[in-house]
Design a protein around this nucleic acid. Structure first.
Lengths: 242, 242
DNA sequence: GCAAAAGTGTTCCGACTACACCCATGC
DNA sequence: GCATGGGTGTAGTCGGAACACTTTTGC
């Protein structure tokens, strides 16, 4: 880490480190992008919605803390987890001012994408917890609106440049499932369906299982499976998905 | 990196926060990409090269700490500074084990790009400090090789998707100056010079000053100036530079 | 003249766009 | 049949890759 400069008269700051997670999910029924929020019940920002978070415990890695936040709030089967950004300016947390020991709070934010169908909110009766459609998110505690905005930017990028989508889709899925997911996150006007389809298949990372599925009216669709092996050579190559 | 053992009580960890900076520079004379390293003189990792860093002081923001590291080591005129990643697993720093109070060290890494010509290393006589060509970097202290690798990835991305290059170039420059910079960072085979030239001019973000400059043999080149106004509308748009 | 560096133009080809159109199902 | 959603094909266009060629300097 750091070379402790030999001449430091200035006092070093003491920190508690928090992990705030931006947890996204896609409601494929209603085509909405959701984000998980929890209601605060303590000062500061009591009665404000906020991103789920926790303070890092002894012996616990940052990522483990993020995992703990997730499992405390939802039962997660499959997900994608990635570090976002670290906010650490002094005075970003009002607790610092009130604190006699002058402890600072640092926030390492993580961004997660989970399967909506496989998650069950843990209703503990007391603390409110809810999926919010992204466009209806209220004013949040701390600088959480800022963190959320940054997380959303990152989600869109991830979707365009990496196959995260298949982490959140079921094992087998139709091509319009994929399209719906992309359209929900990126906006309706991101691409024509048939062109999207062509480009996606040209990547040769999807296997046609041959199985057809019929959902109401219309021609039955083929079920596809993500081929992790076929994707490997493309890993870390410059590539665009959409 | 999940280390939360269940036997540990739920005590919160106490942290000191360090800022480690990956400082890049381009030696346009010799077409080399350089990174700034400092020699450590204390345990742990005494006599190892490491990234310049410092611990965050009371009342000091993370970015201010990064700035302090820069000004302590070099006189900087123009630069680009951006947060990279936060490394915070337990046991990444050997000092943690020796420490009776069980204080953990978190490292927030920053990445900077500075003008080689405008910087002067502060030779304090004691601690070694040097520009290393990227391909000759030795084994570094802590996980600094990892941080450096990540910083290099980010530098290449920045160059391709944003006009950082013009932050490090002089006010006026020739088109091959720009090309040299890109080629040095991205590798010789990233593009043909004339195609690079065409694409760059098509962006219409460079003004031809009309002034010619002659450097030895060959036809004199036009000096261009970066037009920040013309770039504004392109800001945050999806665009590729190279 | 020749070498060296700057600057221009041209051809080829693949990718993306915008559609039109065919196919298989429920009702 | 017809509406609905799945799936295929095609013509036009844009932009990048490769490379030949011209221009202006130093020597």
């Amino acid at each position: 880490m750091t070379a402790a400069s030999s001449s430091i008269p200035d006092k070093l700051a003491d920190f508690k480190v928090g992990v705030d997670t931006v947890i996204f999910s896609v409601d494929t029924e209603q085509n909405r992008l959701l984000v998980l929020l929890v209601m605060r019940h303590e000062d500061p920002y009591s009665d404000y919605w906020s991103l789920p978070g926790a303070l890092v415990r002894e012996g616990e890695s940052l990522e483990a803390t993020a995992d703990r936040v997730l499992t405390e709030k939802i039962h997660v089967n499959n997900l994608y987890l990635e570090q976002l950004f670290t906010f650490g300016g002094p005075q970003r947390d009002p607790r610092e001012a009130q604190n006699a020991y002058n402890v600072r709070y640092l926030s390492v934010s993580y961004f997660a994408l989970v399967r909506y169908e496989d998650t069950a909110l843990i209703a503990d009766g007391v603390s409110g917890i809810a999926w919010y459609p992204l466009n209806r998110v209220p004013e949040l505690a701390f600088d959480h609106n800022e963190i959320l905005a940054y997380g959303y930017r990152r989600l869109r990028n991830k979707l365009e440049y990496s196959p995260v989508a298949f982490d959140v889709l079921p094992d087998t899925f139709t091509l319009s499932d994929v399209y719906q997911l992309y359209a929900t996150v990126l906006g309706e006007d991101f691409s024509d369906y048939s062109n999207f389809r062509t480009r996606l298949l040209k990547l040769r990372i999807l296997q046609d299982t041959g199985v057809k599925t019929s959902r109401g009216a219309g021609r039955p669709a083929s079920l596809y499976r993500f081929d992790a092996e076929a994707f490997k050579p493309l890993k870390d190559k410059p590539m665009v998905f959409l």
